[in-house]
Design a protein around this nucleic acid. Structure first.
Lengths: 169, 169
DNA sequence: GTGAAGTAGATGACGCGTCAAATAAAGAGT
DNA sequence: ACTCTTTATTTGACGCGTCATCTACTTCAC
């Protein structure tokens, strides 16, 4: 009953995994840095503002928004609090459901978004989109969609197959 | 004299950018969760341990390691402090250069890495690698490498072309 | 209705990562 | 030797995101 040799990554797989990690590390850092430098907004700030600006009346229920953005409720609550303090959004209670609340885009928040958008697109293009051929862009879309889809329907994380990993050493 | 319309993302580009962001969000979260659940290590913990285990004498200069991992010196210093407290690594001074210091993998740290590695590979496979065909894997490698390369040689972030963005609104 | 679940959201503690500033030693130029 | 700059590392404050926990309202069953 010996433990099977782990299914290590092949050369190619390692290369892909390494390239993925480094790409994400650099791209995210660069785009975040550009955005903050140019506008004082963080990426999460921008995302929230963008979502709200696309919503009817510039407002969404917290849970609804969290869901749509794939954020945890807690994360959104914390973040909205911070944004609220800076006057970018506001909370308003919900009439139908006294537990609930809406986040509303403020005048100032909308202005900040409009001011930020053009530079942000430039940055996203510069660091990612414009580096890739249309074919590569399509491949990236496809890869992303496949990977995301796997999370969609009740994808359980792999249970740890060993109960006492540390004990064996 | 007027401001040119921003070069917004096309449908395809938006799809790629959205897929990229969602993929990264979910993959990183899932792999991190698995690793922490199974082993009590964070991804950064794991990376540091892995780097050190591959180094001669299981030790590296802080600056050297930070460089190799594309981390800021500050980040590494903070992180090593936290890992040091948990007994995973240790700091030792450097003789040749009294400013410098080494991080050394501790017995315990090495054991933790050996215990974590197999499960971590399973997780990486499960959430990313095994979802993709060999062709897609190759595409991901290529995309990553192209994007990374752009950061390599003195790639400046796009300067903000407008000085007074906010003022115009 | 009354009580048990379930749901919406807030909160506190904690690890993480960034920037800016501090410390401190090495090296360069005079 | 003496300043000046550069390099190695640390530190503190702060924003971010997670988990676990808490509050409060709603819903459903009986």
């Amino acid at each position: 009953m010996c433990m099977a040799e782990p299914n290590w990554l092949s050369e190619d797989e390692q290369r892909a995994w390494g390239a993925y990690r480094r790409m994400v590390l650099r791209v995210d850092a660069a785009i975040a840095r550009d955005l903050t430098r140019d506008t004082g907004l963080s990426i999460p700030d921008y995302q929230v503002l963008a979502e709200l600006s696309a919503a009817p009346d510039h407002q969404r229920r917290l849970s609804d928004l969290a869901n749509g953005m794939q954020w945890s409720a807690s994360r959104l609550s914390h973040h909205v609090s911070r944004m609220e303090q800076r006057g970018l959004v506001a909370r308003v209670g919900c009439d139908e459901d006294a537990r609930g609340a809406f986040v509303v885009l403020s005048e100032q928040g909308f202005d900040a978004l409009k001011a930020a958008a053009p530079d942000h697109v430039v940055s996203v293009r510069h660091h990612l989109i414009d580096r890739l051929t249309p074919g590569q862009l399509a491949a990236l879309s496809e890869i992303g969609q496949i990977v995301i889809a796997h999370f969609g329907e009740s994808c359980p994380s792999p249970e740890s197959s060993k109960q006492e990993v540390a004990a064996k050493n």
